[in-house]
Amino acid sequence: MVKMALSVLRNSLKLGRNVQKIAMLKNVAENAKIEAVKASTGIVCTQNSCLLSRKLQNFNITRGIATGLIELQRHHERKYQSSSESDSDLEEWIGKRGNSDFWRRKMHTFHAILDLNKDGVISYDDFKLLADGFVNLGHLSDKHTKEFYQVIQSLWEKQFGEISEYNLVSVEKFLDNMHHVLNDKQLVRRAHSFLPYLFKAVDKDRSGEITVEEFKLFFRVLGLKDEDAILAFRAIDSNGDGKISSKEFVKHGRDFFVTEDEDKISKYFWGPLTDH
């Protein structure tokens, strides 16, 4: 009887040790599983809880990818802003514009504005004197004044050649030159680079918007009438709020040179079209 009791006790002790071993092995297996999950998912555990988080390396990689995507998006936005100023359908019509009577009439009109002494030709002096008229309004900062003159000089040299009293541009030469500009991808994108400075020059309060009174200043410098300024302003101010933004001003001023669509309101931008 005593032997039987001792045998049962020994078996019980063995069973208890086996249960402990099984429990220990189970814990080891569970811990190994948790470590594997932690390694793959970034689980960080404390004595009380486990939190799911990205490992620093993976986070840096992810952040780098995200930053790259943001920069790529910004690049495309900058590219769009630049290319949008030369029309989304530029590829379709480049090399095919500048042959209509309407477009030639507009170029005649602009040549007449630049021809300050009305002798039928324009020189760099005419170009610069017109620029002086906007600078003399007194609304451009010193920085913008310097930039404006640099833009004017660069435009003349790129479009008409050397700065010389003998370099005179007739109407036909002007038309030929503008035709070339219109059908050159790079030149047509820079052709309106002077327009933001004209806007700043007449934006007296530097509000970023101009009223009809400020638009009159623009026409006066061009040698045009106030009543023509009012008509042009009303046409360009399409939403009728009595203001024209810098973006609208530049867009319509540029469209005057590049579009042959007679329905575009940009045809009023530089005053009444001349007859030729």
Rank of each mutant, 00 (worst) to 15 (best):
L6H: 13
N11A: 15
L13I: 06
L13C: 12
K14P: 04
G16A: 14
I22A: 15
I22V: 14
N27D: 13
K33A: 14
E35V: 05
I43G: 02
F59A: 12
I61L: 14
R63G: 04
A66D: 05
A66G: 01
L69Y: 09
E71T: 13
H75A: 03
E77Y: 10
R78D: 10
S84N: 10
E85F: 06
D89C: 01
K96P: 02
K96F: 08
F102R: 09
W103G: 00
I122S: 05
I122Y: 02
F127Y: 12
V135K: 15
Y149T: 00
Y149C: 02
Q150M: 11
V151F: 08
Q153F: 07
E157N: 09
K158V: 04
F160W: 06
E162G: 02
E162H: 06
V169L: 12
V171M: 14
F174S: 00
D176F: 09
V181G: 01
L182Q: 04
D184Q: 02
D184R: 07
H192F: 15
P196W: 01
Y197R: 06
F199G: 02
D203T: 08
K204Q: 15
K204T: 10
R206G: 11
E209L: 04
E209R: 01
I210V: 14
I210C: 10
V212A: 07
K216G: 03
K216C: 12
F219Y: 15
L222H: 07
A232W: 00
F233M: 06
R234M: 12
A235N: 12
D241V: 07
I244H: 02
I244S: 04
R254C: 11
V258N: 03
T259Q: 06
D261H: 03
E262I: 02
L273C: 05
T274N: 09
